[in-house]
Computed example of a mutant assay.
Amino acid sequence: MALIFRKLRYSVLINTFPRVLAGLLFIYLYCEYLIYYVTQIQCEWPVLKKVSSVQPVYAMILADPHMLGSRDGHWLDRWRREWQMQRAFQTAMTLHRPEVVFVLGDLFDEGDKSSEKEFNEVVQRFHQLFTVPEGTTLYAVAGNHDIGFHYRITPQLAGRFERRLRAAPARLASVRGAHFVLLNSMALQGDGCSLCARAVAEIDKIADILKCSNGSKLCKGKTKLDKYTKPILIQHFPLYRASDSQCTEPDAAPLPERDSLFVERWDCLSKESTEYLVESLRPRLAFGAHTHHSCVARHSFVPTPDHKIEFLEYTVPSFSWRNRLDPKYYLLTVSGEEASVSKCELPREWTLQVTALLMLIALVVYLRYFNSKQNAFNNKHLSGKKV
């Protein structure tokens, strides 16, 4: 009898242990890899209504990854958050294959506090985390956590971000007739500082190129684009608005935070800087970030009685699970005449946890059922009697 029980235990162990390992491995692979595909495969490129002779430009826009430095957060939390962002980003690259990726500031959580060595290390981690495939170009703009708010910016802080991320105070990037103006929000304070002066000079230059390309009589230079289309603004701060009270998206700022008044140059650009940008560049679309929440704002400016400038501005929620339970990013399809936007969701933190728990419960139930069947089968054959 003792021999029979030993054989039963040995048989159960041999048959059960591989199934336990296989089940745990599947749960790990699903919750750490496959779930990002399951979630993001539901998000598709937005379709344009008009048919264009030129292939549209496909761009991915994300914001506020806030990669932790050595001062804030435990190393395990830092590793976990960066692992999540890397899996989500690389899955997006595989599924969507955008031509252009824009990161709207606050790449780093402590960029304005880091030593030169710490800054170089986090920049290297950023490039490893947000690796783009061949044929895709990544652009980054500065956020207040990267170089500090305006009052804290030094030439050293601004200079190292510009050099390592190739992010000038203002820059024009063109892809097949789609023009993007990338801006450093902290350089738009209008106080005449050296950084602000550089930004204004570059914006005026870009504005003149756009005017010349559009055949305006106000054109001063000779540089022209191959094809004129209204530009798209890309920056960290939202354009001026009184608050988020007009934001009605499900992932907008919660109440009562949504009704809190914005502080100019802190929560958004100043009204003067916004009017300067709009009147100089005349955008058709704008993207900002900074609030970590979503918003679609409709802007209307009337610089002259016979001319009105109207466009939508999208505030991009944070890409980090540390800032939101439901990180998101945008996909943008743009042609010379039209632009269309869709918002893509990443798996929620609780979804990952609940999925793992339910799978573990299912594994335990399956093993109990399998073992009961296996015991009955072994008892029948080892005893030579029917059970």
Rank of each mutant, 00 (worst) to 15 (best):
A2H: 10
A2W: 13
L3P: 00
K7M: 11
L13N: 06
I14G: 05
I14A: 15
R19Q: 14
V20G: 14
F26H: 05
I27F: 01
L29A: 14
I35S: 03
Y37C: 01
Q40G: 04
I41S: 08
E44M: 07
E44F: 09
P46Q: 05
K50Y: 09
Q55Y: 13
L62F: 04
H66A: 02
L68N: 02
R71V: 12
G73F: 01
W75L: 02
R81S: 08
R87A: 09
Q90V: 00
Q90M: 04
T91G: 05
T94M: 08
E99N: 07
V100K: 01
V101L: 02
D106P: 01
S114G: 04
S115M: 07
N120Q: 13
F126G: 00
V132A: 07
L138I: 10
L138H: 03
Y139C: 04
G143C: 06
I147Y: 00
F149Q: 09
H150Q: 10
Q156K: 12
F161Q: 01
A167L: 08
A168H: 12
F180M: 04
F180W: 11
F180E: 00
Q189L: 04
G192H: 13
C193E: 02
V200M: 06
A207C: 10
L210S: 05
L210F: 05
L218T: 15
K220Y: 02
G221M: 05
G221N: 06
K227Y: 12
L233H: 09
P238N: 07
A242T: 15
D244R: 04
Q246D: 15
E249D: 15
P250W: 01
D251L: 10
D251Y: 08
A253L: 09
E264N: 00
W266L: 14
C268H: 04
V278G: 03
E279V: 07
S280L: 06
R282A: 13
R284Y: 07
R284C: 14
A286I: 04
A286D: 04
A289Y: 02
A297W: 08
A297I: 12
R298S: 15
T304C: 14
I309R: 08
E310R: 15
F311Q: 02
V316Y: 01
P317L: 04
P317N: 03
D326S: 12
D326Q: 11
V334I: 14
K343A: 11
E345I: 00
R348V: 00
Q353Y: 13
Q353G: 09
Q353W: 13
L358P: 01
L367P: 06
F370M: 13
K386Y: 10
V387A: 08
